[in-house]
């Protein structure tokens, strides 16, 4: 079942996006953000995210991890710099063109952000709202292809029996699976995940990370994840980016991350076992 889902996903993607898989999917150039003038949260971030693989961003609270991720799809308005998705500068977009660009970026949230009073399948179909007109969506007349894809993704995240269950009846882990499936409904070019496991227990966290990495690897979607849990980041990320004080202070493969680096990222050393 999941192979079938992967097949349709890959086919549609290769039709939708012309960029070669090896090229950088996302490039940040001198990205800056300050909510209050003179107090920058992000100080000129330069990053390049490759076409595949999972990248984890770690760092202390309040260091701008969330802001960085939200600047990519402009949920937060950057103060300066460029965000290039497949070479297109998203910071210049307005209105409809911004909306169309957002369709290519999936997002998973810490608090799941499901529409609680809708069913699971309706929540998945919400991932298609960028493609389906508001009136058709309101009348629940989604294209059959979307409904097929929704059921395939429900199989893939192991919630096939919950299609008609209301989202507020699900557990945290189940909700986050719905969140991942909803993001993948967009057939995105890139998946952003803002602390996707911070509200989950350790076991569920691992399951959710496994699912997210697996599904995105099958579909060739690069993932950027904000994380609190360094061990989880080491376990699932190919590349780790350490942030501190609004700057990137570490950028390398997970295996290269040492206690020295962690001291530099989080400060102090008493907390290191």
């Amino acid at each position: 079942m999941s192979e079938a889902a992967a097949g349709t996903g890959a086919k549609a993607r290769s039709a939708g996006s012309a960029a070669p898989a090896a090229a950088a999917a996302l490039e940040l150039r001198g990205l800056q953000k300050s909510y209050v003038r003179g107090k920058p949260v992000l100080r000129a971030i330069d990053l390049s995210i490759a076409g595949t693989g999972l990248t984890a961003i770690i760092g202390p609270s309040g260091t701008g991890k969330s802001t960085l991720i939200r600047c990519v799809n402009r949920l937060v308005e950057p103060s300066g710099g460029q965000v290039l998705l497949d070479g297109e500068d998203l910071t210049a977009l307005r209105g409809r063109s911004l909306r169309l660009a957002r369709r290519r970026i999936g997002m998973v949230f810490q608090e799941y952000n499901l529409v609680e009073r809708l069913t699971v399948i309706e929540n998945l179909l919400c991932g298609r709202l960028g493609h389906v007109g508001a009136l058709r969506a309101w009348l629940r007349r989604f294209p059959p292809a979307d409904i097929d894809r929704a059921f395939e993704l429900l199989d893939a995240v192991g919630l096939a029996d919950f299609a008609k269950t209301r989202a507020d009846a699900l557990s945290g882990g189940q909700r986050q699976r719905v969140g991942i499936a909803r993001a993948l409904m967009q057939q995105p070019r890139l998946l952003l995940a803002d602390e996707p496991t911070s509200s989950l227990d350790p076991k569920t966290s691992v399951e959710v990370m496994e699912l997210m990495r697996g599904l995105c690897a099958q579909r060739g979607i690069p993932v950027i994840v904000n994380m609190h849990d360094v061990e989880l980041a080491r376990r699932f990320a190919a590349r780790i980016i350490g942030m501190s004080g609004g700057r990137v202070v570490f950028d390398g493969p997970a295996t290269a991350l040492t206690d020295e680096h962690l001291k530099q990222i989080y400060g102090g050393e008493g907390w290191l076992a």
Binding site: R102, N113, L114, V115, E116, G127, G179, R182
Partner: peptide
């Protein structure tokens, strides 16, 4: 705000934000 933000992030137009983000709430 959460659900509305999620739908906005997926590129949903304004009327869809009303129908799917606000109305069920």
């Amino acid at each position: 705000r959460g659900p509305v933000e999620a739908l906005k992030a997926s590129g949903a137009p304004w009327p869809s934000l009303l129908v799917f983000g606000y109305w069920p709430q």
